[in-house]
Amino acid sequence: MKFICLGYADMSTFASKSEAEMNALMEQCLKYDDQLRAGGHYVGGEALKAASDAITLRYKDGQVHATDGPFAETKEQLGGILILEADNLQHAVDLMSKHPGVRIGPFEIRPADEVVNALIKERLGL
Rank of each mutant, 00 (worst) to 15 (best):
M1K: 14
K2M: 13
I4S: 02
L6A: 10
L6H: 05
L6M: 15
Y8E: 09
D10C: 07
S12T: 15
S16G: 15
K17A: 13
K17S: 11
A20H: 08
E21Y: 10
E21G: 01
M22Y: 09
M26T: 11
E27G: 15
K31I: 07
K31Y: 03
Y32R: 03
Y32L: 04
D33H: 08
D34I: 05
R37E: 13
G39T: 09
G40P: 02
Y42H: 11
G44F: 03
G44N: 04
E46A: 10
L48D: 09
A51K: 01
S52R: 07
D53Q: 12
D53W: 00
A54V: 02
I55R: 11
R58I: 06
Y59R: 09
K60T: 08
K60L: 10
K60A: 13
H65A: 10
A66N: 03
D68A: 13
D68N: 11
G69F: 02
F71L: 05
E73H: 06
T74F: 02
K75W: 01
E76D: 12
E76F: 06
E76G: 03
E76L: 01
L78N: 02
I81G: 01
I81D: 00
E85T: 00
E85M: 03
A86Q: 06
N88L: 08
Q90I: 07
Q90M: 09
M96R: 02
M96F: 01
S97F: 05
S97G: 13
V102K: 10
V102S: 10
R103N: 14
I104D: 05
G105V: 01
F107T: 10
F107R: 00
I109S: 09
I109E: 08
R110I: 06
R110L: 10
P111T: 06
A112R: 04
A112T: 05
E114V: 10
V116S: 11
N117E: 15
A118F: 01
L119H: 13
I120N: 07
I120K: 10
I120Y: 10
E122C: 00
E122N: 14
E122D: 14
R123Y: 11
L124P: 02
L124K: 11
